[in-house]
Design a protein around this nucleic acid. Structure first.
Length: 995
RNA sequence: GGGCGGAUAGCUCAGUUGGGAGAGCGUUGCCCUUACAAGGCAGAGGUCGCAGGUUCGAUCCCUGUUCCGCCUACCA
């Protein structure tokens, strides 16, 4: 079969499916802890099993895969450990919504059945996610897949919990916590999102109990909470109020009196009236004030956020009002309370008041400060080493701008509430004796309702204790709560590798080399991993933290299902190809900036993939049967030392590859080519497309000897781009690495190199042609390897069709730059060619000669070396400029009917034939002269300034002089050209062009 | 309230020892030139948010300011 029959358009779907499966079958991504080599490891931030992956995951995955493939190709012992997260509240919510649709509830199902139901969902969602990751090309070690609720990881959670409790860093106590009345669970501080709202500030008069006409006016945004007031505070040094301290007030709408206390912490004298009502059970500040003044805590809300009838009775609320507001949610009760206050003349006035309202980050319900017994981690002792690790550079945050963000947060940490009143998650490893705590028995009976009283004594242990140390009884109830999901996530880097056991994996790959994640979970996850890692492994859990951008829509809005602006990665992959999407995301991953993803951009990189595909078609067409067959070494030199090189045995197990694929003899047919999909039934039935030839990197041949100019040049150019890609990846500059690859492949290799060598290739089987074909193929093969981490599927497809050694590009060595390949002379010659050709083409356009018109061209330069280069390169200039080229000194040029154009050091003349409208050319020349004159004037002024000459560096001064000289020379040539053209345009011609 | 980031071509964004302002996409003109029209070639398009300061010289450093975004915070 002939490669000329290749499809003109790259069709990614089949290619991706084929190689994705092949890689898995071959086990290329499996990491062996016993393998040699420098280790490199990443743990995948485990996606929630709440559904499917979004475009942010695609970015996250792409970046990790680029790093992983890059390191794997460098022969490092590379592990990418994947997994998923049980995501307690979020996943429970998903399944509860399903139950709601089925007219049932978790309470009706009961705890065990409900948890079973979530496990079913988890398997489904987990499979979806794994499928998506694989389609993205993620080269994870799937054999090491972990889930946060696996046995091993659960064991790690219990171990950490018990040890923190032993160390006094976990405790149980009654505190005011953030409560979601919809999820019916406690939340940690960072699980509350603050949203600005336009609220109101109600000013309410509290009369003195013994002087009803006098009193204090307090301001509040939540008037309904006054039922729970247990004091009013004023500033002890506020002359307006401080004499009232110690007296009591009558609490409006109730029969209670409450004291006036002095509190310098709570009260800001400048704000409002200087008097603050204290509601210890419903406000964090008031809670602390209540502790300072030993005030009672009166909780007036139920756990569903409704006004509690019993509590209202206890608060001695007026009976009529009590009946009216009981069991109402706050939003409904508030107007009734306000109305009552107004009616009884307690409400002095109401102001508009912008404020921030806390909402549940999972369901957006307004959270309530809620008084309840919970488990907490005392994080301060854990935070200190975690701060030091970053300050001292043991952990590096990239981009480093986020470091202060991290440090600031860590320094202000408060205790972490880790208990959640949900059913999906790791159960708290604490037990209560049913004899000592009779209330605990309710847990056993009910469908999960009931709670353990604050005073109960928990026994924290890996498993249920055999006997109660207090009463010697043996019946226990496990704490019904589960642990915050982020608690188990915090252990991820080491729990996934088998901790607390000291496994080979831990010894080999821990600490993790790089953590790749989004900014949104810097606090939730990264900070806590650092704390836990340091505490339990005495090592930072990772070396580098790369924080990537948030992917927004084209308008810069955050993507969300409710806005309907989510971009589904699978859809885009189907439309444009996975490689195009990956390359887009990598290209846009500039540090510290969010990504606005637009469809056009993806399409642009789809075009890039297509460009490479067509270049491959050309290269293969030219390589077809021509390159001499040379037997490659049986054991590839570079692959031999490669840790991940599959054994001959494993290669032979592959269903789709001939047994000798890794060491194929000359002319061995292979099944893998762009036109012959790897399907076992077809294997070997197609004619060979693969050309066996000696496979060495282009520059490994002595640079400059026996190579044509074009070959010397492209080989010279490979060095800097290789160097740049490696350096950019080292620095996590995926955007710049992608940019270098894009520019080099498209605009150097395709636009210039392939065009330069076409005449040579057409010569047929000459020594020059053979040499050029070799360089062309070798360079192209090298580019595939360089590009592979970014576009794994396309590069594998092409690489397999090119002459190569080995079974897969996945395990080929990543190109290293070789400074010796630089060839300054070839690059100078190229620069001259490029300037000449571009100028000729500009002239062609100005004179409106079509592409097929053969021009008569003269070229020259001031510098003798450049003239020599022009001589050497004149056939290239003739070919690319499409004309006859003579290298002649200016004096020998005709003085008439020549369009002279100047660029840099070269001057180009195009003979004007036929009737041509020269006005375009003249306008162009005028414009260029103006621009150059501006620049020249600027430089002249600068050089005329004594300050500049005295203070600027000699290099800068010399550079300015050189530029001015160049500009002056160009200007005089332009002037000459201008004069000649002016003479020709009068009278203006009727016709134009060549007719 | 505090902190951080951004503002550069129509759009999305690069741009560090301070010295001639770039890319991709879009756009205009010509061209289906045997790898590629998802293409080729050649163009047009920018007082680098505003105002000061430092400097011989500022997109870059400093100060202030406007707008946008994010994080954070207990002023009821």
């Amino acid at each position: 079969m002939n490669s000329r029959q290749l499809e003109k358009i790259y069709e990614p779907q089949a290619v991706e499916a084929r190689w994705g499966q092949y890689w898995l079958d071959q086990g290329y991504f499996h990491a062996d802890a016993d393998a040699q080599g420098q280790h490199y490891s990443i743990v995948l931030p485990p996606p929630n099993v709440t559904g499917s992956l979004h475009i942010g995951h695609a970015l996250n995955t792409t970046i990790q895969d680029i790093l992983i493939r890059w390191h794997r190709m460098q022969g490092h012992n590379t592990l990418w450990l994947p997994g998923t997260d049980h995501a307690g509240i979020a996943t429970q919510n998903v399944v509860e919504r399903q139950l709601m649709a089925e007219q049932t509830s978790r309470e009706q199902l009961g705890r065990d059945a409900f948890v079973d139901r979530i496990w079913t969902w988890k398997r489904q969602s987990g499979d979806t996610i794994l499928g998506q990751l694989k389609r993205l090309g993620a080269s994870c070690d799937w054999a090491r897949l972990r889930f946060t609720m696996d046995d091993g990881l659960s064991k790690a959670v219990r171990e950490v919990f018990v040890r923190l409790h032993q160390d006094g860093l976990i405790y149980r106590g009654e505190r005011l916590i953030n409560w979601c009345p919809r999820c019916l669970t406690a939340l940690s501080d960072i699980e509350v999102e603050h949203e600005p709202v336009q609220g109101k500030l109600y000013h309410i008069r509290y009369p003195l109990s013994d002087e009803p006409h006098d009193g204090l006016v307090v301001a509040t945004t939540r008037p309904e909470t006054l039922f729970g007031d247990t004091a009013v505070a004023v500033h002890p040094e506020d002359p307006r109020h401080n004499r009232q301290i110690g007296r009591s007030l009558r609490l409006p709408l109730t029969g209670r009196t409450i004291p006036i206390v002095g509190d310098a912490v709570l009260v800001n004298r400048e704000f409002g009236t200087g008097a603050v009502k204290i509601t210890p059970a419903h406000d964090f500040n008031d809670f602390e004030a209540g502790e300072r003044h030993h005030l009672p805590r009166l909780s007036i809300l139920t756990h569903r956020g409704l006004l509690n009838a019993d509590a209202l009775r206890e608060a001695d609320v007026e009976p009529d009002l009590r009946d009216a507001v009981a069991n109402l949610p706050v939003t409904k009760a508030r107007p009734l309370v306000v109305e009552a206050l107004q009616r009884q003349d307690f409400l002095t006035h109401v102001d508009d008041y912008p404020m921030a309202l806390g909402k549940c980050y999972r369901c957006k319900t307004v959270v309530e400060p809620f008084l309840s017994p919970q488990w907490f981690v005392n994080v301060r002792p854990l935070a200190e080493p975690a701060i030091a690790a970053v300050e001292q550079g043991h952990i590096r945050i990239v981009p480093e701008g986020w470091t202060n963000n991290y440090l600031g947060w860590m320094r202000g940490l408060k205790d972490w509430c880790i208990s959640r009143q949900i059913w999906w998650g790791h159960r708290i490893p604490a037990w209560y004796c049913t004899t000592c705590t009779p209330e605990a028995r309710a847990i056993l009976d009910g469908a999960g309702s009931g709670s353990i009283p604050t005073r109960a004594t928990p026994i924290v242990s890996h498993a249920a204790p055999p006997v109660c140390p207090t009463c010697q009884q043996t019946r226990f109830v496990q704490d019904p709560d589960v642990i915050d999901t982020w608690f188990s996530s915090a252990l991820w880097p080491f729990s996934t590798m088998g901790w607390p056991d000291n496994t080979k994996a831990l010894q080999t790959w821990y600490p993790v080399s790089t953590l790749v994640t989004g900014l949104d979970i810097l606090f939730f996850w990264v900070a806590r991993m650092i704390m836990m890692g340091l505490k339990f492994t005495h090592s930072p859990p990772f070396r580098d933290v790369y924080i990537h951008a948030l992917v927004r829509d084209a308008e810069g809005r955050k993507m969300s299902k409710s806005k309907g602006n989510v971009i589904d990665p699978l859809t885009k992959m189907s439309q444009y190809g996975t490689d195009a999407l990956r390359f887009t995301l990598a290209s846009m991953a500039s540090p510290g900036r969010d990504i606005r993803l637009s469809e056009e951009r993806i399409a642009g990189y789809r075009n890039f993939a297509n460009k490479i595909w067509n270049a491959a078609r050309f290269v293969l067409m030219q390589a077809d049967g021509v390159i001499p067959l040379v037997t490659p070494p049986v054991v590839p030199a570079e692959a031999g030392s490669h840790a991940l090189q599959p054994s001959t045995a494993s290669a032979s197990e592959a269903p789709v590859v001939p047994a000798n694929a890794g060491t194929h003899a000359p002319g061995t047919p292979t099944a893998m080519s762009p036109i012959t999909p790897v399907v076992p039934a077809n294997a070997g039935t197609h004619a060979p497309l693969r050309h066996s030839c000696e496979l060495s990197d282009p520059g490994e041949e002595a640079p400059g000897t026996g190579k044509s100019f074009a070959d010397q040049w492209i080989v010279s150019r490979v060095h800097p781009v290789t160097d740049a890609v490696n350096r950019c990846l080292q620095d996590y500059r995926f955007d710049q690495a992608a940019g270098h690859l894009y520019h080099f492949i498209w605009h150097e290799y395709c636009d210039w190199y392939l065009e330069l060598i076409k005449p040579s290739l057409q010569e047929g089987d000459t020594a020059t042609a053979r040499s050029t074909r070799t360089t062309m193929v070798h360079t192209f093969e090298r580019l595939q390897r360089l590009l592979h981490p970014f576009m794994p599927f396309l590069t594998e497809e092409i690489w397999q069709a090119l002459p190569h050694q080995g079974d897969s590009i996945v395990l080929q060595p990543f190109p290293k730059s070789v400074p010796d390949w630089e060839n300054a002379e070839a690059e100078r010659t190229f620069a001259i060619i490029e300037q000449c050709v571009t100028t000729i083409r500009t002239g062609r356009a100005l004179l409106e000669y079509g592409p097929s018109t053969v021009l008569t061209i003269r070229v020259t330069a001031n510098d003798p070396d450049d003239i020599a280069r022009l001589h050497d390169a004149r056939h290239h200039i003739a070919h690319l400029g499409r004309g006859t080229v003579a290298v002649l000194a200016q004096e020998e040029w005709p003085t008439d009917r020549v369009l002279r154009l100047v660029v840099g050091r070269v001057t180009v003349g195009i003979t004007i034939e036929g009737d041509v409208d020269l006005n375009k050319a003249l306008a162009r020349i005028h414009k260029q002269m103006q621009a150059k004159q501006r620049d020249a004037d600027h430089l002249e002024r600068r050089l005329a300034s004594p300050d500049f000459v005295a203070k600027a560096s000699p290099e800068v001064i010399q550079e300015s002089r050189d530029r001015l000289a160049l500009l002056t020379a160009e200007l005089s040539l332009f002037a000459l050209s201008n004069r000649q053209l002016q003479n020709m345009v009068s009278p203006p011609p009727f016709g134009k062009g060549l007719g």
